[in-house]
């Protein structure tokens, strides 16, 4: 009886602790959301907690009509669309041959090491930057796509999935005269659509969240993707925006407290990922333990 009571007490305390931890993860984001929905004066005075104070959508209407913000948003959309397409195509094209054995594909292990080695060793930032400069991709959106076109991590995940497919299907198709190309598209890809869908989401999150390549590879801010743009405005007050404004206008802008404005932009930039991430959960294990843990 006593043990049961102790157990119940533990359950309560444990639940309280877990809920507290969850709140700790949720709170900062809720706080930013409610700051963005508050009046600028309330936000500047630090009165906003969980609920918006003096509810107002003005920061959103300002952000969504701000040209630089929208431009960056469009760049990000382009990047994501192109990036996912290229990532997925190359992932499938690499995963299929690599899922074969050494006997089925001459040089299979050599290829595998060729890709894997880039995961553990790289030339470092400076030579990488110089290569992109030499290839002439600076200020070109392809600079955000091509260097990360092959995601070795994705390839390994999909390769392992392809390997688990029953061999009999592709073997009999091969005997019936089907080539590898059609086997890949007509058997492997349809059978692994759930995995591929997950990788699409990963690719989306990757491209949406990337900011550093935009910062160093795009010289004109008009070509910044959204996260790079956010990085720039969160670090300093954007000098471009202040250019050509009167002192009064600048003061007025500062009073929009920048805080509500920043918050609304943070929230808009985070929203797509927040909408997508719960669907990734199931595939975590597969993703992390991309090899196989036997036993």
């Amino acid at each position: 009886m006593e043990a049961q009571q102790g157990s119940r007490l533990f359950d309560t305390l444990n639940l309280a602790f877990l809920v507290f931890a969850a709140a700790l993860c949720l709170f900062p984001i809720i706080n930013v959301l409610s700051v963005s929905l508050s009046s600028s004066s309330a936000a500047a005075a630090g009165q906003v907690g969980i609920w918006p104070v003096e509810f107002s959508l003005s920061s959103y209407s300002y952000a969504l009509t701000k040209k630089s913000f929208l431009t960056a948003f469009v760049v990000s959309l382009k990047r994501v669309a192109l990036g996912i397409g290229v990532n997925m195509l190359l992932t499938i094209l690499a995963a299929y041959p690599l899922s074969k054995t050494k006997r089925e594909l001459w040089g299979r292990n050599l290829y595998a090491w060729f890709f894997f080695f880039t995961m553990i060793f790289n030339g470092g930032l400076i030579p990488w930057y110089m290569v992109i400069k030499q290839v002439g991709l600076i200020d070109n959106i392809l600079a955000l796509i091509l260097p990360t076109a092959v995601q070795v991590f994705f390839v390994l995940v999909l390769m392992n999935f392809f390997r688990q497919l029953p061999k009999e299907i592709s073997e009999s198709a091969l005997i019936d005269g089907a080539g590898h190309w059609s086997i890949m598209w007509k058997i492997h890809v349809p059978l692994s659509l759930p995995s591929i869908a997950t990788l699409v989401l990963f690719s989306f999150v990757f491209h949406w969240n990337s900011w550093f390549d935009g910062l160093i590879l795009m010289t004109s801010p008009a070509r910044y993707p959204l996260q790079t743009y956010m990085q720039a405005i969160l670090e300093v007050v954007d000098p471009l925006r202040l250019k050509g404004m009167t002192a009064e206008q600048i003061a007025e802008l500062m009073k929009v407290s920048n805080r509500t404005l920043k918050s609304s932009q943070i929230f808009i930039a985070a929203a797509p990922v927040l909408a997508v991430y719960p669907f990734l959960q199931k595939y975590f294990m597969k993703g992390l333990l991309l090899g196989s843990v036997k036993g």
Binding site: C25, P28, V35, N209, Q227, R259, K262, Y277
Partner: peptide, 21 residues
């Protein structure tokens, strides 16, 4: 589901939030 949400946000976004908080 709640506790692994911050994992998916970029450090740009999170530092924006943290600087504020």
């Amino acid at each position: 589901t709640i506790v692994y949400m911050p994992y998916f946000l970029s450090w740009v976004i999170l530092s924006g939030i943290l600087i504020d908080v």
